[in-house]
Amino acid sequence: MSAVYLLLLMLPLVSAQTYHWGPCPNPKVQPSFNVQQYMGRWYEIAKLPASFEKGKCIEANYAVRKDGTIQVLNSQFYKDKVRVAEGTAVIPDKREPAQLGVSFSYFTPYSPYWILSTDYTSLSVVYSCTDVLRLFHVDYAWILGRSRFLPPETVRYAQDLLIGEGIDLFRMQSTDQTGCKDD
């Protein structure tokens, strides 16, 4: 009874997310992932809905800090201004360097941020999933590019990769990268 009540209380919180019944899928990640090659700027091409991403011109910039953690700077243009969120990524298990954890607050646990595939120079396919009492899961998926626009066949390749790993892309949407100011 209490699990159902908790689920009902949480539904408004996940309404802007993508959630499914049952536990998270367990997709394969990039083999021999090289974190140094991954650093730098990535532009969001498409995503599953995320309540914290409502704007346009969304990008992420990654840099290794002196302490070995990774600085994550996410920015988006929303309500007539650039909004930036700084977070920290860590590699909890050095044997699986493509399975990062990311947090944007000292008070929140690290969320999964798994790089399923990347060529480091043009495309990255990222997935995140959190189980809620093993009753349902909330997931996110991002297709990222080193440029603001990717060829349609590259986007389709990334979508097919996600679908092949059992990730439902019904709600995936393109990110508006038009009219953005570049540094």
Rank of each mutant, 00 (worst) to 15 (best):
M172S: 03
Q159S: 07
Q173P: 03
C129P: 06
G101R: 10
G164A: 00
Q99M: 11
S122V: 06
E86D: 11
L162W: 03
S75I: 04
I163G: 05
K54W: 05
S51M: 10
P31N: 10
M172R: 03
G166F: 15
G22Y: 08
D67Y: 09
F170N: 11
G101T: 01
F77D: 08
R171D: 08
V64H: 04
I143F: 09
L7V: 03
D93N: 15
R148G: 07
S147D: 14
F33E: 02
K181C: 13
P151A: 14
L100H: 00
Q37E: 12
V126W: 08
D80V: 07
R83I: 05
R171M: 08
S174R: 15
K47D: 07
I143Q: 06
E59A: 14
W142P: 02
L8T: 08
I45D: 03
L7R: 14
R171E: 11
Q173H: 13
G68T: 00
Q71N: 14
H137V: 01
T175R: 10
N34A: 09
T118E: 09
A60W: 07
Y127L: 01
L73G: 08
P92S: 09
I91R: 06
V125I: 15
Y78L: 14
L123S: 04
V29M: 14
L8R: 02
Y110C: 05
F149I: 05
G68D: 00
V14H: 12
E59V: 01
A98R: 01
G164N: 09
N61E: 05
A89D: 11
L6V: 09
Q17R: 13
M172D: 03
P112Y: 03
A85I: 04
I70H: 04
L150G: 07
S2F: 09
D93T: 03
L133N: 08
G87H: 01
V126R: 03
D168L: 12
Y120G: 07
S103G: 07
V102R: 03
G179L: 15
E59R: 13
Y62Q: 09
V35P: 01
D67T: 02
L161R: 13
P109F: 11
G179I: 15
N34H: 09
S111F: 12
V29H: 14
N74T: 00
F136S: 04
D67Q: 01
R134L: 05
I163V: 15
P109E: 12
Y38Q: 07
D93F: 08
